[in-house]
Write a protein that binds this DNA or RNA. Structure first.
Lengths: 239, 239
DNA sequence: TCCCGGACTTGACCGCAGTCAAGGCACGCG
DNA sequence: CGCGTGCCTTGACTGCGGTCAAGTCCGGGA
């Protein structure tokens, strides 16, 4: 990749360059974005976006990890997505033109590059290819949401199986007993990501273990019966 | 509105003209679409799209009503949306380029105008304003999906209250006792739309009635306490 | 007028999962 | 070495909601 020009922060430039919304944009346009961006550094736990606020800006994650979630009336959380460097934040509200539909907070110390919503529309208008990338991204988000809805309709062991299977597709390592994976987060965090609580997740692990489908050793899981896990995670038959 | 040219079906032309994805397209472009479209007439109950099929076409509803839903492993349905004349069908898969993420079936006899997925991309490339409309539509779909996820996290009486409130915003008529609305579908259908079954919906109606929040007379409901219904439907403070 | 079928309601039952409470286990610090 | 603090697990309880079964109401047809 082209290095950042000297007069902009290189971490900001790199994150913007990697953002999937405008892969096809020229380096000069990225530099312009980097110059226009308002850089914000936040501590762990900072609330970046509150549901219902009018959306006038969106951001790109420069460093750290952001979690996007919905807050139920009783304070219960529903996790939507986890964002890392290069991922766009709050772009939906920017494009839909209304209020933020969800909350975002930093789960690690983080740096964000904020841009005016209108900036994104200008990029789209200026470059057909960017329009295409934005449309693809949005369409894929909708597809992912249908998956989220699907998942929420399953019971917890099935949701867990689904997670294990999809994670195995990514980081699965064949081992002597089966396919070995690392959970990638604490079980408490996984419980939240699956829309449940640690106690129930623990029982779900126990049940899959009792049925000889998996073995659990701390944060590592060996999938003994991949077919059964895939089936439990509800007919995920695609590649 | 400009009438349809004589050499294309006027119902098809009208439905295409009203499609929200390309409001700004020229009449000539609509005529071209109408000519290119493959017209399909289906009976009530026909399955139009099956989840997992490769997406090579999308459609616009010319007449009738289409229901889009997800099918759980056990055959349980999750309703996503209901489409009428002028609404686009399966546009997500066309733009995401993969397989259909949901099923669609006709709930009444229906007529559809099918177009190649590539046709939509051509329209987008040819007209910046169309790109803008498509992006807005997609962004709003994502926002709506966050609402669906939110709703599924509520208990059934709250989901019902949410539906009643939103419907009241649309077709509510002030009456002597309160705001009167027509459910717009059978209670069995409403149960499915709310992700539950008739028995549970019936109990939810009974509970709201017992709490003096509504009165029910067949397919008509009088909302006695709009504030309470709005609050139950979970702090819907907008518009 | 009688009968039938479909929509809706009500009651009884039960399983899943969230909550509360009580432990077990590992790690780090004094 | 002992203790505290998270993280995880297990048990007991409860409430929501889906299922099964029965019963009511209403409109259409013979």
């Amino acid at each position: 990749m082209t290095p950042a020009p000297e007069h902009v922060r290189s971490d900001v430039w790199t994150a913007l360059r990697e953002c999937r919304l405008w892969r096809s944009a020229a380096d000069a346009a990225i530099t312009e974005l980097a110059r226009a961006a308002r850089i914000e550094e936040v501590h762990r736990g900072a609330r970046l976006i509150a549901e219902g606020e009018p959306a006038v800006e969106f951001a790109v994650v420069v460093a750290g990890r952001i979690r996007v979630f919905h807050l139920g009336a009783d304070g219960k959380r529903i996790a939507f997505e986890t964002l890392d460097a290069g991922d766009p934040v709050a772009v939906i509200a920017a494009l839909a033109g209304g209020r933020h539909p969800a909350n975002a907070e930093a789960v690690t110390p983080a740096i964000l590059a904020w841009l005016a919503s209108e900036t994104l529309w200008e990029l789209i208008a200026a470059d057909d290819q960017v329009a295409r990338e934005v449309i693809s991204d949005l369409a894929n988000r909708v597809v992912n949401f249908t998956g989220v809805v699907h998942t929420l309709a399953l019971d917890v062991p099935s949701r867990l199986a689904r997670y294990l299977f999809q994670r195995a597709l990514g980081v699965g390592q064949p081992s002597s007993r089966g396919l070995e994976i690392d959970l990638g987060m604490s079980k408490t965090d996984l419980a939240e990501a699956l829309g449940t609580v640690p106690e129930t997740l623990s029982r779900a692990f126990a049940r899959l273990r009792d049925e000889q489908l998996i073995e659990v050793q701390g944060g590592r899981v060996i999938i003994l019966d991949v077919r059964a896990i895939a089936r439990l995670g509800s007919g995920y038959s695609e590649g």
